[in-house]
Design a protein around this nucleic acid. Structure first.
Lengths: 240, 240
DNA sequence: TTACATCAGCCGTGATCACAAGTCACAAGT
DNA sequence: ACTTGTGACTTGTGATCACGGCTGATGTAA
């Protein structure tokens, strides 16, 4: 799959597997993949309270399946560090601590900084246009609530990282956001502060000029200042 | 697990769960954890050939269990990107490509560079001594074969990263090594070249002086030059 | 009222089975 | 000779069940 044309050393025109006819390849999603998506969505949406144990059977009943698909979905989320394994071998949504948050921020600075710098060199005009549109939408819907803001912000960032053409790094960053995501719903920080939006504007300007260094600076400032603001309110009310 | 003493807000002396007596907490390992360890060991050891599909039932028979534990072990390894999901939903050990290798190297430079810099500030004399001992052992057993070298080299690096006190980053780096590991057995590179050992010596010197910048430089040189050497022989014989 | 033993219920784990999709080889047809 | 349909066999998926461990409530004795 990773290397087409290797097993068939000189593919004839008749054996080609290209999308023939007007038919899209109909995908068959397994139940545990759907379960994974659902639980992931619940985690990112802030629906699940941190610390409370979630049982396989309860989730299975909620999803209308047996325990099998849920088991595999949870196992995968644990591997991605989105959920945590208790000594009972039950799983929980981990409680965020200041130390853990700080570490994740430092990882993000290293990784996303590098990706932003790379993205500046590879981004296409179309992608840049899409990012600009996302940012405009963000400003327009600024006061539509934290949830909407967070979703748009994530889309903006991921669109940027996508331009770096680093799929491996992309999936690592996704797991990092998956750990931070649920926590952001429980902290009271004003994400609409003009500073944050300014970083995005600087980012767009750096991308337009293909300036990798400036792009890195912009993303670092964006991550760093947001983290500082969150850490402040985290230290104020330690857990949650 | 991450926050002891939280569920019991004022633990009495009788209900304490601390390691009392000289007794180590006897751990009950589940079958799928053992299956995970075994398959992982096989992957890192270069036993499994890249590209060949591995069936659940065959592994189950080899391990003497049913399919259940194997299924979960494979699922976890796929989540960690150590294995790859085929369209058939079977799993394979991914074939390494130059592009993929290059991306992983760039991620490692960003992540492990940051960790080395952090480690320089936190490392204890004991840990430094242990690293020195590992390096000496590496030099002594230099010609005992690639397998032994790779194991000692990994131990050296991981001992360093451990000193950074960043468990999240640590587990990310582990997955990166898990992807590169199997591949290193199939490429013919002289890992015993004096350059590589020199980087380790520089690293030890930097750590002794608590010089984060020098530590970062040393690790970057170590990773970068090894990668260059491997990429050269990878381009010579593209796959495998 | 308090301390402790008991027991029922729930939990994760793993084995087994049924089923649909996929793979491969062979043979019939062009 | 090459393509195509058919069949048996293998594969991953998901449901169900049994089992041991853990939790929490109940009851009993002090």
């Amino acid at each position: 799959m990773a290397d087409p044309g290797r097993m068939a050393p000189a593919a004839t025109a008749s054996t080609q597997e290209r999308p023939a006819f007007g038919l899209a390849k109909l995908e068959r999603e397994t139940l545990h993949e759907r379960a994974y998506d659902e639980v992931k969505k619940a985690i990112m949406g802030g629906t699940i309270a941190p610390g409370e144990p979630m049982t396989i059977r309860a989730l299975a009943k909620a999803l209308g399946t047996s325990v099998m698909p849920v088991r595999e979905a949870l196992r995968r989320l644990v591997a991605e560090r989105a959920l945590e394994l208790l000594p009972n071998r039950s799983v929980t949504l981990p409680v965020m601590t200041a130390e853990k948050f700080d570490e994740i921020v430092r990882i993000r600075l290293a990784l996303e900084g590098m990706m932003a710098e790379t993205a500046a060199k590879h981004i296409t005009p179309d992608e840049l246009k899409r990012m600009t549109r996302l940012n405009d939408e963000m400003i327009a819907k600024l006061r539509l609530g934290t949830k909407k803001y967070l979703a748009l912000n994530q889309e903006f960032h991921f669109q940027l990282y996508m331009a770096a053409r680093m799929p491996q790094a992309m999936s690592i960053v996704e797991t990092l956001w998956l750990q931070i995501g649920p926590f952001l719903h429980h902290v009271d920080t004003d994400f609409g502060a003009p500073d944050f939006l300014n970083h995005h504007a600087l980012m767009l300007k750096a991308l337009a000029k293909r300036d990798g260094g400036k792009a890195r600076s912009a993303i670092e400032a964006d991550i760093g200042e947001a983290a500082e603001s969150i850490l402040a309110s985290l230290r104020a009310s330690p857990l949650k």
